[in-house]
Design a protein around this nucleic acid. Structure first.
Lengths: 156, 156
DNA sequence: TATTGTTATACTCTATAACTATA
DNA sequence: TATAGTTATAGAGTATAACAATA
């Protein structure tokens, strides 16, 4: 009689085990990064998304661009900006070039908050400061190879 | 008269600019990883948290452990497991060793789903497969240095 | 007493669809 | 016609507080 098939663990074209292991470590690293970020934001009464949005606002930006960068629907941006505006961390301003557009920008208080978050996050990721120049260069190259920069939609 | 202070951009003990730049790239990489993961999960009608939980269940686990690994309150795990259980992707089982504990484990359908998600994610991160052995080793070392493994709570 | 899991609650995030005002 | 932003809605994630069962 035919023996039952030996216990082959999976279907799918079986990626190299080394890659699987590496992907697991990437998953852990990404989780760790956001755990740190969320904790720092929470220390200021901010959610992850609120902290992300503040960190993105190095310059005034249309709400639509924020939706793209946060990878969420445009309708969500309204609420997030509402809550940040209620706490006077950001402001909405009309775009003189296109009256449909509202630019979001940091208030002074918002700028201070961003700087504090960045500094605190940096001190949480203390391992970063232990890298020498060669390590930094290698890391930047590797990350760039795995996560190629995504181009924002062309500005019209 | 005293001149106004030159425009010094920040307060805070000013981390090395190289580290700041690197932290930005880490943020982008982490965001990119989760954007990919969430898209793959969404392709199967799963949310990010549901996908994360499935991926964690390589072995049966107490709900409490899942809460720790997902970095959320234990009360949230109830709802997430409820929804996965309703779709028959996981099951709850009594822990013979401690009757307070419920172990969560993947059903066969859940196992298949996890394998499909992992395979699809791997093909999204095609850059991973382009790394040679030296690159993989370097990346693992660097990630380990920046994000030291966090030890789960000792198992009683 | 402490821990596990659950429930109730209130808030935030999320996508979808419909709307307005502009372009 | 197409786009930017808003609103309404329903579902999902979130922490807090209180609870029952068990250790």
């Amino acid at each position: 009689m035919t023996r039952p098939a030996p216990h082959v663990p999976s279907a799918a074209p079986a990626p190299a085990p080394a890659s699987v292991q590496l992907m697991d470590q990437l998953a852990q690293a990404a989780a760790s990064y956001y755990r740190n970020f969320a904790a720092v934001a929470a220390g200021r009464g901010l959610t992850l998304m609120q902290g992300k949005m503040l960190s993105l606002l190095r310059q005034p930006m249309p709400m639509r661009t924020l939706a793209d960068l946060l990878a969420c629907d445009a309708s969500n941006v309204t609420g997030i900006v509402d809550r940040l505006e209620a706490r006077e961390l950001v402001r909405r301003e009309a775009d003189p070039a296109d009256r449909r557009v509202k630019l979001v920008l940091l208030t002074e208080s918002g700028q201070r908050t961003v700087e504090e978050i960045r500094a605190e996050l940096m001190s949480e990721l203390s391992g970063l400061e232990t890298l020498d120049e060669a390590d930094r260069h290698a890391l930047r190259r590797l990350l760039g190879q795995i996560f190629p920069a995504e181009h924002a939609r062309p500005p019209r």
